[in-house]
Simulated assay, not measured.
Amino acid sequence: MWPAPFELIYAGRVLKPSYPIRTDRLILRPFTPADLDPLHAIQSLPEVSRYLYWGPRDAEQVREVLETRIGQSALLEEGQALSLAVELASTGELIGDGVLFWHSRLHRSGEIGYVFHPAHHGRGYATEVGRALLKLGFDGLNLRRITGRLDGRNEASARVLERLGMRREAHLVENEMVKGEWTDELVYAILQREWRARR
């Protein structure tokens, strides 16, 4: 198990990870301007955005996204997101990203998400990143509840959340219009005490 990769300032309960964060096979780190081309190689693929709100992005759109993500390396206030580039430790290749949202200080709630290049699907990397994000949320930010939301057709992502010990709490039928069609949404969640019991 990797060491606690964060600094806590208890007066305001903020999360400033100590980078890089290393898992068994991956390195999680802040985004940098050098990530533009590999990030574009991921986000320009139609299969990557199939179950997401956005479609394939051109270079300029990815540049704008990257500028935002570069500034998301710590959680200082509720409503913010922590965006992490995911590299293969063995090669340094950027293969995807993970995100931890801090929704509410009062309710101590957050959400995780992840996106990977299709060439790296099916190898357990999303589960590995999910575990790291849960640790950051529960140990680093002392969240009480973390959710994961996904398109109801995304069976592979649902299996990832289940492997993380998250329970399916809702199946919302045709609740959103996404890219011109009504889509179902699944909501998964896990409580801090449940996550700690699993460890």
Rank of each mutant, 00 (worst) to 15 (best):
77 E>D: 14
51 Y>Q: 02
93 E>W: 07
96 G>F: 04
64 E>S: 15
73 S>K: 11
78 E>Y: 04
54 W>Q: 01
60 E>H: 08
74 A>E: 15
100 L>N: 09
103 H>F: 07
56 P>R: 04
75 L>V: 01
92 G>H: 12
100 L>A: 04
74 A>H: 13
85 A>C: 12
59 A>C: 05
57 R>L: 15
70 I>S: 09
99 V>G: 03
99 V>Q: 10
101 F>N: 11
76 L>H: 06
74 A>P: 02
94 L>S: 13
101 F>G: 03
53 Y>R: 10
103 H>R: 00
56 P>K: 01
84 L>V: 12
65 V>M: 15
75 L>P: 07
58 D>F: 03
58 D>W: 01
85 A>G: 14
60 E>S: 15
96 G>R: 00
68 T>F: 06
91 T>Q: 10
78 E>H: 08
61 Q>I: 01
65 V>L: 15
94 L>K: 08
67 E>I: 09
58 D>H: 02
89 A>V: 02
86 V>K: 03
88 L>N: 11
88 L>G: 12
63 R>H: 14
80 Q>A: 06
105 R>M: 07
74 A>L: 03
100 L>H: 09
86 V>G: 08
53 Y>I: 03
57 R>D: 14
70 I>H: 03
101 F>E: 11
80 Q>R: 01
78 E>G: 13
96 G>V: 06
80 Q>C: 04
104 S>V: 05
91 T>L: 11
69 R>Y: 15
60 E>L: 09
67 E>W: 02
69 R>T: 01
68 T>W: 03
97 D>I: 03
77 E>I: 00
86 V>A: 08
66 L>Y: 06
55 G>Q: 04
92 G>E: 13
89 A>N: 11
79 G>E: 07
63 R>F: 05
101 F>V: 05
90 S>Q: 13
68 T>L: 14
85 A>M: 07
105 R>Q: 13
92 G>A: 13
85 A>L: 08
53 Y>T: 09
89 A>R: 13
101 F>S: 11
55 G>L: 01
58 D>A: 05
98 G>P: 04
71 G>H: 08
99 V>S: 09
60 E>P: 01
77 E>S: 08
63 R>Y: 04
63 R>E: 15
52 L>S: 06
62 V>M: 06
75 L>T: 00
106 L>D: 10
71 G>D: 00
83 S>M: 13
102 W>Y: 15
102 W>H: 10
51 Y>L: 02
90 S>L: 11
73 S>V: 02
93 E>A: 13
72 Q>T: 05
61 Q>R: 09
71 G>R: 12
52 L>N: 01
106 L>N: 06
79 G>Y: 07
64 E>M: 11
102 W>C: 04
87 E>L: 15
82 L>S: 13
83 S>G: 00
68 T>K: 15
60 E>C: 05
102 W>F: 15
98 G>D: 12
90 S>N: 09
84 L>S: 09
64 E>G: 12
68 T>M: 10
102 W>Q: 00
70 I>A: 07
94 L>G: 12
74 A>S: 13
75 L>D: 07
79 G>V: 08
72 Q>K: 09
82 L>G: 09
67 E>L: 14
56 P>W: 04
83 S>L: 01
67 E>Y: 00
81 A>T: 10
59 A>E: 14
95 I>Y: 08
